[in-house]
Design a protein around this nucleic acid. Sequence first.
DNA 1: AATGAATGAGCCTTCATTCAT
DNA 2: TATGAATGAAGGCTCATTCAT
Lengths: 204, 204, 204, 204
Amino acid sequence: MFVNNKNNKRDRILKAAVQIFARKGFYNSKVAEVARQAGVADGTIYLYFKNKDEILISIFEEEMGNFIAGIKSEVFAEEGSVSRLKKFIHTHLQFVRKNPNLAQVFQVELRQSNRFIKEYTGSKLKEYLDVIGTLIIQGQEEGSIRQDIHPGLVKRALFGALDEIATEWVLSRGGNHDLDESAEQVARIFIDGVIAPRRDSSGG
Amino acid sequence: MFVNNKNNKRDRILKAAVQIFARKGFYNSKVAEVARQAGVADGTIYLYFKNKDEILISIFEEEMGNFIAGIKSEVFAEEGSVSRLKKFIHTHLQFVRKNPNLAQVFQVELRQSNRFIKEYTGSKLKEYLDVIGTLIIQGQEEGSIRQDIHPGLVKRALFGALDEIATEWVLSRGGNHDLDESAEQVARIFIDGVIAPRRDSSGG
Amino acid sequence: MFVNNKNNKRDRILKAAVQIFARKGFYNSKVAEVARQAGVADGTIYLYFKNKDEILISIFEEEMGNFIAGIKSEVFAEEGSVSRLKKFIHTHLQFVRKNPNLAQVFQVELRQSNRFIKEYTGSKLKEYLDVIGTLIIQGQEEGSIRQDIHPGLVKRALFGALDEIATEWVLSRGGNHDLDESAEQVARIFIDGVIAPRRDSSGG
Amino acid sequence: MFVNNKNNKRDRILKAAVQIFARKGFYNSKVAEVARQAGVADGTIYLYFKNKDEILISIFEEEMGNFIAGIKSEVFAEEGSVSRLKKFIHTHLQFVRKNPNLAQVFQVELRQSNRFIKEYTGSKLKEYLDVIGTLIIQGQEEGSIRQDIHPGLVKRALFGALDEIATEWVLSRGGNHDLDESAEQVARIFIDGVIAPRRDSSGG
DNA sequence: AATGAATGAGCCTTCATTCAT
DNA sequence: TATGAATGAAGGCTCATTCAT
């Protein structure tokens, strides 16, 4: 789908970087290692990326771009905001399950680049969070989601919850639990809350 | 108020490190800067900490220890699991608001230490998460929290949500929103869900 | 004359190290000084040598290799073990006279590297000592050298004597005596002994 | 004999230094280690010695002083220069055998102190070498030692030979040979030479 | 005289980046 | 475009020495 022969080498570098960064962490990965893994010379890296940080940013920008496009089409194929929210949650964690190295970089290593955190306000991250925000707003408009919560807050809360669950899964290398089941649970919590249903309320 | 004058110097180093790490990031902070800020010689640092990583770990271990003790006493002073859950959420974000530097270190810099992430399975972090877990289990026992959710999942989801909100607040230096209001919202979402109340259920 | 232009830089570093180590001593020489003297950057050193100790080891290994080859060809061009022994003694001290810096490193600085002394059982040093050992054995076989001395002991004793004389010469920067005359004397002592010839033995 | 209760602590430091220096080498021995081994505080060392080098110098000066006095009385109890020379050789190597730690420091570690080698012209070492020199001169005067060798050269050659043999013995921790037998051999070589006796010369 | 906590100068080594080929 | 040898700034850590107690 995104086969681009012209940027063959650039892609190889990016793939190599994902492997290395995931395995050793950003700060402990050497540019020379990425070059070796990609099968190019050290200097070649700098023909495609301004510096080490830019490799990380590019991984995020480009892979995240693909992922956002994908999750959007999945989510908006559903009908109704609540269904779409469920779909979002499942798709997010499925992506993690299917791309553990990339997820490791997203979850953990990305945060180790100061330039990323401090300077990169993150159009892509913002765009991703806004998918959630949009869902919430639409739900509020259609009446299926309560009015007294801020979309901007929900999107952070939901993203944080998914992120933490993904991080734990990634760090424990999937040992601890089933991500699909986790998705089910997160959906339940965010949609219906943790509170026990009030029996008497339906009695009238 | 500070009990131990003996560890005066150790404390000063720790406080200084929190400042410096928060301001410049762990990897961009020099040991010499921490020393200068603490008013000690470079070498003195190594009388109290084995290496730079150990300073970070110690910040976490010790401050987190205090915080956990504090939040536990606050939370368990409340009656009922739902009230306790609310209290937990508010206290977590209040702590962030009152200790922005420390929060910055917890939220962002701590994750830049490989030793922390890879080796430190984190008894303190686990202990903190288990406060939430315990609340959920007690709520399930007393019937106020639904049975079909896993405490282990809720604790991750709630911690992740709070963590993400705190991170955004810390990175935007509090510009974007009011953390107390955010706490209110998170409580609402986790307890009651985002779904709109079913009108007919109340039988009116 | 210098065969390999390729290892131009490695050679320059080695030459520079000999100069610096001889002048200031191994432990008081800074890698940066060697680099400056060699006209390369600090980091370049580490493209050719794993660490500071390895520079010292390499000096020994390579220069000693050349020297051993040279002294062997000189010595074995002579006829008869006694003549060969004389030649060995003279050649050893001539080398010292002609390469005072290198000799300084061999005599003094090399012994300051723990790795050298403790770990380096020294194939080259052993090889050198064995040149003497071989001479003695051959002399014993041909009857020109007495049977009641151990070649392994003679080689140590002779090497030690030459070494000490060289060290004194090196440390006094040649001021005290003429090395060729010293060689003559050492040959005399080791071959004929210090004892006065017995007059009556010649049978009058 | 040299029990000096006043300098109890100074002695303990010196003894400790011999142990530590012998075990780990001068440059790899820490002053703090010597202090611990001696059972004193780090700072106490500096009440008795100006700096680390001075400890080494003092070991040499003081132990060497004792040793020189001892070897002199042993040697000059003998009659005749040749016998005295033999006695010297045996006593030197016996001392090594009986004081391996001290010998290790003399043979190896002492050379690692630049101040020692460069600045310390070594009155004690000179005094020791002069014991040999005196023997040779007396032998030449009494006619038992040949006139055509320089006492100054012999003393260096003999000291170097003994030193090298001792060093090997010390580094191999005595495994390789018997020092008394070595002494016998060295005496034979230095007195009679390595050359085979000329049969016909005595034949008349 | 004794302590030992504190000092801080010093240096080896790493590694992101450059540039001549 | 591509190379990879060369660069050199930067910093964590050590340890001999000091000094207030």
